[in-house]
C-alpha cells in the first residue's frame, strides 16, 4: 500500500500558497507515479478542496494522469508536418510492435503510448519522444529499433 502520509507532507510544503493545487499534484505525481483515487482523496482531505474540483484539474492537464503508466512514455507527434513525412506509418508499426493502442500501457508495464502535439522539430519529421529523449527522421523500422533498445535495457535492469 502506498504511504499516503507523503501527500500530507507535500501539501504542507505549499500551505502558504493561495492556489497550491497544481504544485501539489505535480509533486504527488512525481512521488507516486500517477494520481490514483486514494491519493487524490487524500489531497482533497488535507487541502479541503472538493475532490470533484481536484479530479477536474487532474483530468484537464495532459501531463497529469489518473491511471498508472509504463516505465517509458512514448509520445508520437500527430501534427501535420510529421504526418506528411510518414508519422502514420511509424505509429502503426509502433502499435504493432508494442501490441497496444495510443493511450494504453503494455502488459509488462514498460511502455505507455501517447500522442503529442508539435515538438517544434519539423525539420527532422517524423519525430517521437521517449521519456525526455527526442528521436527524429524516423522510419517504421528505426522507431522499432529504438524501442527494442529500451526494452533490452529495461529487462537487463530487472
Amino acid at each position: 500500500m502506498q504511504d499516503l502520509k507523503k501527500v500530507d507532507d507535500i501539501a504542507k510544503k505549499y500551505a502558504e500558497m493561495n492556489t497550491p493545487l497544481i504544485y501539489i499534484l505535480k509533486d504527488v505525481q512525481k512521488e507516486f507515479g500517477y494520481l490514483s483515487q486514494p491519493i487524490l482523496t487524500q489531497v482533497a482531505q488535507v487541502t479541503d478542496i472538493p475532490l470533484s474540483e481536484i479530479y477536474g484539474v487532474a483530468t484537464f492537464y495532459s501531463l497529469f494522469t489518473t491511471k498508472p503508466k509504463g516505465k517509458h512514455i512514448v509520445r508520437c507527434c500527430n501534427n501535420a508536418p510529421c504526418f506528411v513525412n510518414g508519422s502514420k506509418e511509424v505509429l502503426e508499426k509502433i502499435k504493432e510492435y508494442l501490441g497496444i493502442d495510443t493511450g494504453e500501457t503494455t502488459e509488462d508495464a514498460l511502455f505507455t503510448l501517447e500522442f503529442t502535439s508539435c515538438l517544434g522539430l519539423c525539420a527532422v519529421a517524423p519525430v517521437m519522444m521517449v521519456d525526455d529523449e527526442v528521436y527524429g527522421n524516423l522510419t517504421p523500422e528505426k522507431a522499432v529499433a529504438i524501442l527494442k533498445d529500451y526494452k533490452m535495457k529495461g529487462s537487463s535492469n530487472a
Binding site: 487524490l40 475532490l51 474540483e53 479530479y55 477536474g56 483530468t59
Partner: peptide
C-alpha cells in the same frame, strides 16, 4: 456539496463524479 464537476478538457470535456 460539489458532488459533480467538469472533467477533462476541450472537445472531450464531460460532467462526472470523481473517478
Amino acid at each position: 456539496v460539489s458532488a459533480i464537476g467538469m472533467e477533462g478538457r476541450g472537445y472531450d470535456v464531460w460532467v462526472d463524479t470523481p473517478f
